[in-house]
Amino acid sequence: MTTTDPVKTTATPKASRRTTKRPAEPERFALLGVWAVLFLVFSLIVPETFPTTANISNMLGSQAVLLVLALGLIVPLRAGDYDLSVASTLNLSAVVVAVLNVNQGWNIWAAVIAAILVSMVVGVVNGFIITRFDIDPFIVTLGVGTVVQGLIYQISNSVTITGVDRKLSDTMLTQPFLAIPVDFYYAIALCVLVWYVFDHTAFGQRLLFAGQSRDVARLNGVNVSGLRWVSMIISAGVAGVAGVIYAGTTASADPTSGAAFLLPAFAACFLGSTVLKIGRFNPWGTLIAVYFLVTGITGLQLMGAQQYVQQLFYGGALVVAVIMSKLVKTRGERRRQAEVRPDVPA
């Protein structure tokens, strides 16, 4: 390279430090531990209903929609942008599938592809407004999401559409593999894909930098606006996929229930950022968070808790997650800093 000789000699004595072990970070696995304890406790309290194949299979399968949605959402979150329109996009996708398939008589697969494309248009609009006019994505996606909700009412005439082609339900739900609905495996596959993209592609690394510091990314030749735009399209497209799965699992589409996914999705993403890779949105953490949340809720409901426990749990989890990630980060920071300190020349 350009500079080799002048300082090369000084480096060798320090090379032994290279083998220094990475600090163990037990906090990284805290949520997994809590999850295990939770599972154990519920198994002891309600042994006849909780630790059964039917219940576990139900828990795994029922959360596929939420997991897919959250996996789409972490893409813009990683780039430092909120996308509050994902829930209505999911709903739009489900309604489009139902309207095209049931009311218009389209082939189910054509309807599915159309629904995903329509969803991506939402992301295109979001990204255009955010990057072209440089507006806070929080407010843009809030507005666009509400517009989408209006469109849903319009195209569905505000009624629930039932009778979506059984072929869709068959591929999603009714033919379980190893007693677990197939949509669970789709979600896992997406999880692997997102993990690969985040950790092993240049795109994923650029997203990370764009999220951490827009200036640094830009000065290092990253097309930050383009990247943010693409991340909005991805999250909308994945929300569309989640909507298709949702329509498949219920074989119908109603104009309102999608909104209920918004908070759980954010809770899962933020809680997920406290696991495995602390302070970073990561797909496996999100997966763990989704199933941690559903374990808690299902267990409490089996113990006889009312429906409202769901809100309490999701809302509480979101708040606790952000506090936790802050605390854990500062603690880890202090320790790592102490590690580096002694080397700093005075």
Binding site: V7, K8, A11, K14, R18
Partner: peptide, 18 residues
């Protein structure tokens, strides 16, 4: 190593370096 960055550990957090 070449530039004598202390600590010479690429895994160290950037913000903790002097």
């Amino acid at each position: 190593d070449r530039l004598n960055v202390v600590p010479p550990r690429p895994a160290a957090q950037f913000g903790h370096l002097s």
